[in-house]
């Protein structure tokens, strides 16, 4: 065995029970009210390029039961060691085999339909994507409608791949199948469940 990396992974949640509960309620609030920006402010010292929100979501949701796909930009030895130590998730290189996916470089992101979509009998088996974006603003931008939204919500997102609106439209059209997105930016997160309609 050749262990070249000896540094211990940086810490996860200081209080795993309470911090993951608060982070989960943030994620739940975000997906129950698409377009709402929620702060996941637990102190996590995750290695770059993991944002605080992405790290909190991983610690809260991912474990040995959920194969995780990580994009090339995030698959550094430090990040892999951190995830293996704190989450214990199997890392997969097949987007279609992942229950969760971590995207930090949206330009090189695989298309949404490369990830597991679930099927008509078990649409809950689709993947959940944690996508790092450069900006999140709860005004202007996209017009969101659908379950969880009273009239309409507004969400401006910077750093989504070109053609995202069309790709999301196809994802929405496949309802009840399709992937669900958590858009992370620093310690903030907003959700796009598959049920949400997006318009420019």
């Amino acid at each position: 065995m050749n262990h070249t990396q000896t540094a211990a992974p940086s810490p996860g949640f200081a209080d795993p029970v309470q911090d993951s509960q608060r982070a989960f309620r943030g994620l739940l609030d975000a997906i129950a009210r698409p377009g709402t920006i929620v702060r996941l402010d637990a102190a996590v010292s995750a290695p770059a390029p993991l944002s605080a929100a992405a790290a909190a979501a991983l610690l809260t949701l991912v474990d040995f039961e959920t194969p995780l796909w990580i994009d090339g930009a995030a698959a550094t030895p430090e990040v892999l060691a951190w995830i293996r130590f704190h989450c214990g998730a199997p890392i997969t290189t097949e987007p279609a085999a992942a229950r969760f996916a971590l995207v930090t470089d949206t330009v090189a992101m695989p298309p949404l339909d490369a990830f597991c979509q679930g099927d008509d009998s078990y649409p809950d088996r689709s993947a959940t994507l944690l996508v790092a974006v450069e900006g999140l603003e709860a005004r202007n931008g996209f017009r969101l409608t659908g379950p969880g939204i009273e009239d309409e919500a507004r969400l401006a997102v910077e750093g989504l791949p070109p053609g995202f609106i069309a790709a999301w439209g196809r994802n929405r059209a496949g309802f009840p199948c399709g992937v669900d997105l958590f858009l992370t930016c620093g310690d903030r997160v907003a959700a796009l469940p598959r049920s949400t309609r997006l318009e420019v």
Partner: peptide, 15 residues
């Protein structure tokens, strides 16, 4: 709790 939380998030995504 993580297993139930994942189920709840999917339940909310598929009303």
């Amino acid at each position: 709790k993580r297993m139930i939380r994942r189920a709840i998030l999917k339940a909310v995504a598929i009303p």
